[in-house]
């Protein structure tokens, strides 16, 4: 059993929604996996909202918990704004927090991550920081951020 912020899940698997060959295969893969949490992203919309609507309809059909991410954010401010937009859009305080430190390797910026997490926690967003491997486990890392 897996628990995040008091919510329990029978599957420990978290799945992304990118890079599937087709939307249908994405849906089938998520259903077959048994994952109850899927990550989604936010993007600027230039097609009148129709692309986002089509994707969101597919996710809603799955009846899974959505974990929005801040992928593509390079600064603390970008990540904070994106997380707040995610809360507005998805109606969830959860966020998979990412602040990119290196464009080529996509390694996170741990200092920026801590700063962004601190800001978000103070606004009652519940973040799951994505940090480089250190001697701290992610759980300990998140606790250190929360303090």
């Amino acid at each position: 059993m897996l628990a995040f912020y008091g919510k329990q899940f029978s599957s420990r698997l978290l799945l992304g929604t990118a890079r599937y060959p087709s939307p249908t295969i994405m849906q089938e893969a998520i259903r077959a996996s048994g994952a109850e949490v899927v990550t989604v992203s936010l993007r600027r919309e230039s097609a009148g909202g129709r692309i986002g609507n089509a994707f969101w309809d597919l996710i809603r059909d799955l009846n899974v918990t959505v974990l929005p991410n801040t992928a593509g954010c390079h600064t603390v401010q970008e990540a904070v704004t994106t997380a707040q937009l995610a809360r507005e859009l998805f109606g969830t305080p959860w966020v998979k927090l990412e602040v990119i430190g290196d464009d080529e390797t996509l390694q996170p910026d741990p200092i920026g991550l801590v700063e962004a997490a601190g800001i978000l926690i103070r606004t009652d967003l519940r973040s799951s920081p994505i940090a480089p491997k250190t001697s701290l486990s992610r759980c300990d890392y998140a606790k250190s951020v929360a303090r």
Partner: peptide, 24 residues
């Protein structure tokens, strides 16, 4: 969303409109 119609825009404003997309 409830404040969209009351939010006055000014010259030079930076506006971001975002939607859900596939992501990992």
């Amino acid at each position: 969303r409830t404040a969209w119609s009351d939010t006055t825009l000014n010259s030079g404003d930076q506006i971001e409109i975002i939607t859900p997309r596939q992501g990992g």
